[in-house]
Write a protein that binds this DNA or RNA. Sequence first.
DNA 1: TCTACGATCTTT
DNA 2: AAGATCGTAGAT
Length: 205
Amino acid sequence: MGCMVFQQGCPVPKSFYLRPVEWVARELLGQHLHHGNVVLRITEVEAYGGAEDSASHCRFGRTERNAPMWREGGRAYVYLCYGLHHLLNIVTGPEGEGSAVLIRSCEPVDGLATVLQRRGHVKGPALLTGPGKVAQALGLDRSFNDHLLYESGGLELRAGAPPTSILRGPRIGVAYAKPDHREALLRFAIAETRWVSELGKFPSS
DNA sequence: TCTACGATCTTT
DNA sequence: AAGATCGTAGAT
């Protein structure tokens, strides 16, 4: 169970998600999100876990908004951020754990014309670095909240090529959290790609 | 009810 | 460096 590898193009099974959020986060790198004709390769993620994580939406316990996060892993948790951007999370762990992985950046694999159309006339229209851009490229809104990613139809996760090396650093935009959680190294990115936000905030090593 | 504030992105 | 823009959560 430590590492799960699937043949490329296969739907990722439910069991993949029912593991510690940090493992799932790392192994989501390289996997493919499918929605309609659009296919994106996940290049950057962040893990958020449990009621103890003061950076997580679950820090206040069960609420109406975070309900999907508390359910069984393998579903989407989509919410509106700053009143403007939809953010896509993938719920992990068993029912009641309250952990999820934020999808922060992706590289377009297919359906680029659709992505460009959805992005509009902004600079770097296909540079999907940042969670708001990812959800926009996939055409997601809150109607995808609670959607199961291991069932066919709609938004799906399928196996892609695993990365050869991974960057690890602190999460972005969680200044409000307690120091331990603010500084926790729970952001992961594929090293050999430019599809990563805030690259400078990884330890220079 | 009321109020403050975001797991952000874009332009200035 | 700041504005856009609104749902959520905690306070009243």
